[in-house]
Amino acid sequence: MPQFVIERNIPGLGDMDQQTLKEISAKSNAVVDGLGEPYTWITSYVTGDKMYCVHEAESAEAIYRHAREGGFPADRVTEITGLIGPHSGR
């Protein structure tokens, strides 16, 4: 199944406390459970005012649906077409 990187602009994100981030995570999980289609949240990276998430879904539209239903921004959704790392150069 395709994987996507989602860029979310969320002012003040880096200053949110763990309880608030937990609530955001719980909301995301609830939306995933209610989508009624294959969908997996892989991980998210929190930075200053942005969050970069990796999700697995059948289409970019499913990613946007998750965002709409959860009330999350999805400013850019890009399909991952390859993966490299230190191992790639060996």
Score class of each variant (00 low, 15 high):
1 M>K: 10
2 P>L: 04
5 V>I: 14
5 V>H: 08
5 V>A: 14
6 I>W: 11
10 I>D: 00
12 G>K: 07
16 M>T: 11
16 M>A: 12
16 M>I: 12
17 D>H: 12
20 T>W: 03
20 T>D: 10
23 E>S: 08
24 I>C: 04
25 S>T: 12
28 S>C: 08
29 N>P: 02
32 V>N: 04
32 V>R: 09
34 G>Q: 10
34 G>W: 00
40 T>K: 15
40 T>D: 04
42 I>V: 15
44 S>E: 11
45 Y>K: 09
45 Y>H: 13
46 V>P: 03
47 T>E: 15
49 D>H: 10
50 K>Q: 14
51 M>D: 14
52 Y>Q: 08
53 C>M: 07
54 V>D: 02
54 V>W: 01
56 E>I: 02
56 E>P: 00
58 E>Q: 14
58 E>M: 10
59 S>D: 05
60 A>M: 04
61 E>H: 00
61 E>G: 10
61 E>D: 14
63 I>G: 00
66 H>M: 09
66 H>P: 01
67 A>L: 02
67 A>P: 00
68 R>Y: 05
69 E>G: 00
70 G>K: 05
72 F>I: 04
73 P>W: 00
73 P>G: 09
74 A>I: 06
76 R>H: 14
78 T>F: 02
79 E>M: 07
80 I>D: 06
81 T>H: 09
82 G>R: 11
83 L>G: 08
85 G>H: 12
85 G>P: 04
89 G>F: 15
89 G>K: 13
89 G>R: 13
90 R>Q: 10
90 R>E: 08
